[in-house]
Nucleic acid binder design. Structure first.
Length: 134
DNA sequence: ATTCTTACA
DNA sequence: TGTAAGTA
Protein backbone atom coordinates (compact mmCIF):
# COMPACT_ATOMS: atom_id res chain seq x y z
CA UNK A 1 0.00 0.00 0.00
CA UNK A 2 1.12 3.58 -0.51
CA UNK A 3 1.56 6.20 2.18
CA UNK A 4 -1.91 7.65 1.82
CA UNK A 5 -3.62 4.37 2.70
CA UNK A 6 -1.28 3.67 5.61
CA UNK A 7 -1.96 7.14 6.96
CA UNK A 8 -5.69 6.60 6.69
CA UNK A 9 -5.57 3.15 8.28
CA UNK A 10 -3.40 4.21 11.21
CA UNK A 11 -4.60 7.73 11.77
CA UNK A 12 -1.02 8.96 11.52
CA UNK A 13 -0.15 11.84 9.22
CA UNK A 14 1.88 11.19 6.09
CA UNK A 15 4.36 13.70 7.46
CA UNK A 16 4.85 11.57 10.57
CA UNK A 17 5.14 8.36 8.55
CA UNK A 18 7.93 9.88 6.45
CA UNK A 19 9.58 11.05 9.65
CA UNK A 20 9.44 7.52 11.06
CA UNK A 21 11.25 6.31 7.97
CA UNK A 22 13.88 8.99 8.39
CA UNK A 23 14.33 7.77 11.96
CA UNK A 24 14.70 4.18 10.71
CA UNK A 25 11.49 3.05 12.36
CA UNK A 26 9.95 1.97 9.07
CA UNK A 27 11.69 0.77 5.89
CA UNK A 28 9.13 0.76 3.11
CA UNK A 29 10.20 -0.37 -0.35
CA UNK A 30 10.38 2.04 -3.24
CA UNK A 31 8.66 1.69 -6.56
CA UNK A 32 10.27 2.88 -9.76
CA UNK A 33 8.04 5.89 -9.46
CA UNK A 34 9.75 6.76 -6.20
CA UNK A 35 6.55 6.09 -4.26
CA UNK A 36 6.94 4.28 -0.94
CA UNK A 37 5.39 0.80 -0.83
CA UNK A 38 4.38 -0.36 2.64
CA UNK A 39 3.72 -3.95 3.74
CA UNK A 40 0.52 -5.04 5.47
CA UNK A 41 2.46 -5.60 8.68
CA UNK A 42 3.45 -1.95 8.76
CA UNK A 43 -0.03 -1.08 9.98
CA UNK A 44 0.71 -2.98 13.18
CA UNK A 45 4.26 -1.68 13.31
CA UNK A 46 3.00 1.91 13.25
CA UNK A 47 0.67 1.17 16.15
CA UNK A 48 3.56 -0.35 18.08
CA UNK A 49 5.65 2.72 17.36
CA UNK A 50 2.89 4.91 18.79
CA UNK A 51 2.74 2.72 21.88
CA UNK A 52 6.49 2.98 22.40
CA UNK A 53 6.41 6.76 21.87
CA UNK A 54 3.62 7.00 24.43
CA UNK A 55 5.89 5.07 26.80
CA UNK A 56 8.31 7.94 26.57
CA UNK A 57 10.95 6.23 24.46
CA UNK A 58 13.00 8.22 21.96
CA UNK A 59 12.83 7.34 18.28
CA UNK A 60 16.45 6.23 18.57
CA UNK A 61 15.61 3.77 21.34
CA UNK A 62 12.52 2.59 19.52
CA UNK A 63 14.60 1.90 16.43
CA UNK A 64 16.90 -0.42 18.33
CA UNK A 65 14.13 -1.97 20.38
CA UNK A 66 11.47 -2.54 17.72
CA UNK A 67 13.29 -5.44 15.98
CA UNK A 68 13.46 -7.23 19.33
CA UNK A 69 9.76 -7.02 20.05
CA UNK A 70 7.12 -9.60 19.23
CA UNK A 71 3.48 -8.69 18.83
CA UNK A 72 1.06 -11.40 19.88
CA UNK A 73 -1.91 -9.56 18.51
CA UNK A 74 -2.60 -7.17 21.36
CA UNK A 75 0.51 -6.81 23.53
CA UNK A 76 4.16 -6.04 22.87
CA UNK A 77 6.49 -8.68 24.27
CA UNK A 78 10.29 -8.41 24.59
CA UNK A 79 11.95 -11.01 22.38
CA UNK A 80 15.59 -10.34 23.19
CA UNK A 81 17.24 -10.90 26.60
CA UNK A 82 19.05 -7.54 26.74
CA UNK A 83 15.87 -5.69 25.85
CA UNK A 84 14.43 -5.52 29.35
CA UNK A 85 17.69 -3.96 30.50
CA UNK A 86 17.40 -1.13 28.00
CA UNK A 87 13.76 -0.59 28.92
CA UNK A 88 14.59 -0.52 32.61
CA UNK A 89 17.19 2.17 31.97
CA UNK A 90 14.56 4.26 30.24
CA UNK A 91 12.24 3.68 33.15
CA UNK A 92 14.91 5.08 35.48
CA UNK A 93 15.27 8.09 33.19
CA UNK A 94 11.52 8.70 33.48
CA UNK A 95 11.68 8.39 37.25
CA UNK A 96 14.38 11.06 37.37
CA UNK A 97 12.36 13.34 35.08
CA UNK A 98 9.29 12.88 37.27
CA UNK A 99 11.26 13.70 40.42
CA UNK A 100 12.60 16.86 38.77
CA UNK A 101 9.08 17.94 37.86
CA UNK A 102 7.81 17.27 41.37
CA UNK A 103 10.65 19.41 42.75
CA UNK A 104 9.80 22.19 40.30
CA UNK A 105 6.16 22.07 41.38
CA UNK A 106 7.12 22.27 45.04
CA UNK A 107 9.11 25.43 44.34
CA UNK A 108 6.15 27.01 42.57
CA UNK A 109 3.83 25.95 45.38
CA UNK A 110 6.05 27.71 47.89
CA UNK A 111 6.08 30.90 45.82
CA UNK A 112 2.31 30.77 45.33
CA UNK A 113 1.75 30.21 49.04
CA UNK A 114 3.96 33.23 49.81
CA UNK A 115 1.77 35.33 47.49
CA UNK A 116 -1.43 34.32 49.27
CA UNK A 117 -0.15 35.51 52.65
CA UNK A 118 1.16 38.78 51.20
CA UNK A 119 -1.14 41.77 51.97
CA UNK A 120 0.34 44.39 49.65
CA UNK A 121 -0.21 43.87 45.91
CA UNK A 122 2.36 45.76 43.86
CA UNK A 123 1.03 44.36 40.59
CA UNK A 124 2.35 46.86 38.11
CA UNK A 125 2.73 44.58 35.12
CA UNK A 126 -0.54 44.44 33.12
CA UNK A 127 0.51 41.11 31.65
CA UNK A 128 0.30 39.60 35.12
CA UNK A 129 -3.10 41.05 35.96
CA UNK A 130 -4.90 40.62 32.62
CA UNK A 131 -7.77 38.15 32.65
CA UNK A 132 -6.99 34.83 30.95
CA UNK A 133 -8.10 34.78 27.33
CA UNK A 134 -10.13 31.88 26.30
C1' DA B 1 -5.68 12.69 -7.64
C1' DT B 2 -1.28 11.19 -5.18
C1' DT B 3 3.22 11.28 -3.83
C1' DC B 4 7.98 13.19 -3.53
C1' DT B 5 11.64 16.39 -1.66
C1' DT B 6 12.98 20.58 0.34
C1' DA B 7 12.41 24.32 3.28
C1' DC B 8 10.27 27.67 6.38
C1' DA B 9 7.22 29.19 10.42
C1' DT C 1 4.76 18.87 12.74
C1' DG C 2 1.90 21.48 9.34
C1' DT C 3 2.12 23.39 5.02
C1' DA C 4 3.48 25.40 0.56
C1' DA C 5 6.02 25.00 -3.73
C1' DG C 6 7.05 22.64 -8.07
C1' DT C 7 7.33 17.80 -9.99
C1' DA C 8 6.65 13.17 -11.80
Amino acid sequence: MRIGELARRTGISERALRYYEEQQLLRPERRRSGYREYAEGDVRTVRNIRTLLAAGLSTYTIAEVLPCMTDDGDALVPACPELTTVLSQDRDRLTTAIDDLLAARDILDAIIAAGRSETAQPASDPALTAAPAG
